[in-house]
């Protein structure tokens, strides 16, 4: 090992991709910043090729490439096909305010540690979170803030556990529609809205067909900064340190920026003349109680008793 460590570092090129964010988007800018910090920190010894959303394929395809080491670094929105436990991140109502969420995902936070272990088991290195915010329910022609009122709305959820279970527990009728057909499905009334995303996606893609956004905060959505473990091992310790530190800086910057960005998207939504609704504290408490009771027992089967015990302990349940 000494011989290797002493050898002059070879020039390396890393491939860095994101599955959600074109050039110029917040996520696109984030991976560019990450790349630039790596180049600067290694004095050009490590070069980084950047690939934006869809350049290397769909979300699942790019994640495959990361798993195989074809992509070395990634800002990805977690896929659960390789390990169901990654849906830990989607456990509903673990918290509903920013400070708690950031504490859990930040350096030394309990979710940060738990995800680090899970990623390690599938050959990835967890380098930090890149939060977007709390999701909600976007509908057209009215909205609901209670379980009873929600029954009038049929909303699209991604076909991934526990999204369906969560939104059903909130009272909505759920429906499966492919993302590519969602716009016209809303337009023609196949569904009345969608219930999985932070408001950014609704203002960006559905601003002209949806009218109401209720910030129900069932999940805190975050991208993950990650590396393929084998690619990682090919870097020198000094290079690893630079990549990790650069990721930490990108994460910290997003922790500062995310809440403001989310509020900016809320403002754009209102500017379209749409209604934006925060449930009252009682309404939120009622949703939290109902969803935890309905969904968490099922989560235990997916996550295993140990992880679920950690969730319960950390959230005081």
């Amino acid at each position: 090992a000494t011989g290797l460590a002493a050898a002059p570092a070879r020039a390396v090129t890393l491939k860095l991709a994101t599955d959600s964010g074109a050039k110029g988007s917040d996520a696109g800018n984030a991976i560019e910043a990450w790349a630039e910090k790596i180049r600067a920190g290694t004095k050009g010894e490590v070069d980084v090729q950047v690939f934006y959303q869809n350049e290397l394929g769909g979300q699942q395809e790019v994640f495959d490439l990361l798993m195989a080491g074809d992509v070395d670094l990634m800002l990805n929105w977690p896929m659960t096909s390789y390990d169901q436990r990654i849906s830990l991140i989607y456990t509903p109502y673990m918290f509903t305010d920013w400070p708690e969420a950031l504490k859990a995902y930040g350096p030394g936070g309990w979710l940060n540690a738990a995800l680090g272990d899970i990623y390690g088991d599938i050959g990835l290195r967890f380098l930090g979170a890149w939060p977007e915010g709390f999701n909600g329910v976007a509908t057209r022609g009215g909205h609901a803030t209670t379980i009873e009122a929600a029954r009038a709305f049929k909303v699209r959820v991604p076909p991934v556990s526990p999204f369906t279970e969560t939104v059903a527990a909130m009272g909505y009728q759920t429906a499966t529609v492919d993302w590519g057909e969602l716009y016209s499905a809303i337009q023609t009334g196949v569904v009345d809205g969608e219930a999985a995303n932070v408001i950014f996606y609704d203002v960006t893609y559905f601003g002209d067909v949806l009218t109401d956004y209720v910030h129900t905060r069932q999940q805190f959505l975050t991208g993950i900064l990650t590396a393929n473990e084998e690619s990682w091992q090919e870097l020198t310790p000094a290079q690893q340190a630079v990549v990790a530190e650069a990721a930490r800086q990108v994460m910290v910057a997003q922790f500062d920026a995310a809440k403001a960005a989310d509020e900016g998207h809320v403002a754009s939504w209102k500017k379209l003349g749409h209604s934006y609704v925060e449930p009252t504290a009682e309404e939120l408490a009622a949703l939290t109680k109902a969803v935890r009771a309905a969904v968490w027992p099922g989560m235990e089967k997916v996550l295993g008793p140990e992880l679920m015990a950690r969730v319960r302990a950390q959230t005081g349940n």
Partner: peptide, 8 residues
Amino acid sequence: KRPQTIPV
């Protein structure tokens, strides 16, 4: 080496 499951 990296088995996957079909969602749902």
